[in-house]
Design a protein around this nucleic acid. Structure first.
Length: 270
DNA sequence: ACCGGAGCCTGTTAGC
DNA sequence: TGCTAACAGGCTCCGG
């Protein structure tokens, strides 16, 4: 599932192919892919727009355009983006495609159809509710403390809450809690200062490792070029139920928290 | 404030 | 062997 490191990998891979290109047309065969405006509006407003920058915010890809609007894409569960020659046959799970002025297309493939495309005047309409970027310089232990402050919820669902911190999904939440030695059901308000620092360090470490390894190809995620990432080979707990903990050798356990599979070592995490 | 559950999807997998 | 049912998961919405 594309989380922050996967989306960052996609953004970096697409930049050379997309920046400076003008979008000359939009094709879509699954209207619900287009969150807003309507598919017809999108097809009317987007052509002629030139992409001036591509960045990531949380798990969103943000395409800055020369005009006043911003194109935003969320890959959700199974989204995949690639720039390919327009005359190549489209994979059957491609439901939206953006024709470019160089004879190529930005194709949005999405088997589970959860992905979303937005074209908005103000990016904040879509991104405004997101919490801070965990890899930004100003994401300090103190800021993490603020984001968790006062909450009596379990750490796992808190880390998944995009309005608290942006970009963490199920894989990196489990990995961060393991790296921090914190139990996923631990209540946020009980964390001491040292534990908060450990969690801060762990979040940044696992996300940075995920980027360095170009994402985790555990379910459907592959890079724009179709190659797998390498983070799945560095995972400590995620989907390792029953296998020995790499630290203590005891079996990794799985519970459901907030409706999400949660993997942890009951001995190493408290 | 917080939690649980349904819904959106479909390919894979477990179970009979 | 062949079928059905459950499952996965990011996010939103609804009800308790």
């Amino acid at each position: 599932m594309p989380e922050l490191p996967e989306v960052e990998t996609v953004v970096r891979a697409l930049r050379p192919d997309i920046i400076g290109r003008a979008i000359i047309g939009v094709w879509n065969d699954w209207p619900r892919h287009i969150a807003r405006p309507s598919p017809a509006e999108l097809a009317a407003r987007l052509p002629g727009e030139r992409v001036t920058a591509l960045d990531r915010r949380g798990k969103y890809l943000v395409f800055a355009l020369a005009g006043p609007e911003t194109l935003i894409i969320h890959l959700k569960m199974s989204g995949h983006l690639a720039v390919v020659d327009a005359d190549r046959p489209r994979h059957r799970h491609v439901h939206t495609a953006f024709a470019l002025d160089d004879g190529r297309e930005l194709r949005f493939r999405d088997m589970r159809k959860f992905g979303k495309v937005y074209l908005v005047r103000e990016a904040a309409e879509v991104l405004g509710g997101l919490g801070p970027e965990p890899l930004a310089d100003d994401f300090t232990p103190a800021l993490l403390g603020e984001r968790l402050a006062g909450s009596k919820r379990a750490l796992k669902p808190l880390l998944l809450d995009q309005s608290r911190i942006a970009g963490i999904g199920n894989i990196y939440a489990d990995e961060a809690l393991f790296a921090a030695g914190l139990h996923p059901e631990r209540r946020a308000h009980t964390l001491g200062r040292a534990e908060l620092h450990r969690l801060h360090r762990a979040i940044r470490a696992v996300l940075a490792l995920g980027i360095a390894r170009e994402g985790a190809s555990i379910d459907l995620y592959v890079k724009p070029d179709g190659q797998k990432g390498d983070m799945q080979n560095a995972v400590q707990v995620f989907r390792r139920t029953g296998y020995p903990c790499f630290r203590c050798g005891r079996p990794i356990e799985r519970v459901v928290l907030g409706g999400r599979s949660t993997h942890f070592c009951p001995h190493c995490q408290s």
